[in-house]
Design a protein around this nucleic acid. Sequence first.
DNA 1: TGAACCGTATTAGTCAAGTGATACGGTTTA
DNA 2: TAAACCGTATCACTTGACTAATACGGTTCA
Lengths: 135, 135
Amino acid sequence: MVSFAGFPPEGEGPIYLRIVRFIRAGVAAGAIVDGDEMPSRRVVSATLGVNPNTVQKAYRMLEEEGLMVSRSGAKSFAVVTPESVEAARARLQAEEIGRVVSALRRSGMEKDDAMALLSRLWDEDEQAEERGESE
Amino acid sequence: MVSFAGFPPEGEGPIYLRIVRFIRAGVAAGAIVDGDEMPSRRVVSATLGVNPNTVQKAYRMLEEEGLMVSRSGAKSFAVVTPESVEAARARLQAEEIGRVVSALRRSGMEKDDAMALLSRLWDEDEQAEERGESE
DNA sequence: TGAACCGTATTAGTCAAGTGATACGGTTTA
DNA sequence: TAAACCGTATCACTTGACTAATACGGTTCA
């Protein structure tokens, strides 16, 4: 059974996204294996002190990513095929950042400048989220 | 006098940010030169069909970026120096990569991974160009 | 000086995101 | 089969971003 015992009591961004991140991290770290039973919406909501709908929103997203399956009325289980999941996600991310790479290179920017810019913007985006600003 | 005649009737994001982008692009492209008179809030609002406060919000941001100056009761003027031009270009680029940063962070990626990914994709894009491949 | 502009400040309305409260129907199991 | 779970759907509330409505004071110039 997947456990939410180690869920960070505080964190960045909306709760449902933190739940999604938490599960994704568990999958990436190998703490969650294929077929693991996911705790019910109600159990997680009681553990975290949030509404079941908040958990439902996270679970729905994880399901759309192919990381878990749910059947109405029955339990939910993790679906972990590390290679395919990781590869698919990396491909989407690579596509996205790849477009920026081309755009920045076309604009004449040097690699070091781009790296510095990414680093700075990453920190700024992090701080913006901490301030609760929209995305 | 800076003109809003070519302002895109439709676009992405809030109106005030589109105004900011529009002026930034004009500065970066050299279409707006130092000392150019900026149309008043009311004139722009009438041209674009939005509230003067929306224009004010954009103008305020442009002023904070050092791209224009305003005096209460008087006209507003563009400030185009080598520094402000570079600032405008950097802002435009930062906005582009900023969207990617948000997307990557939402997807749960860590900063180090994003940096490594950018570095790798940069090199690959470079090698692809050296081989004469199109985009 | 005063009319006609200008930039500015304050307040209110609109909308979407995030979360909560509640009810419904399906599944499990004793 | 019936109680106790489960996932799901619907509606309400809160909050912040965005925009609008309006009023105020400063500047310009005939």
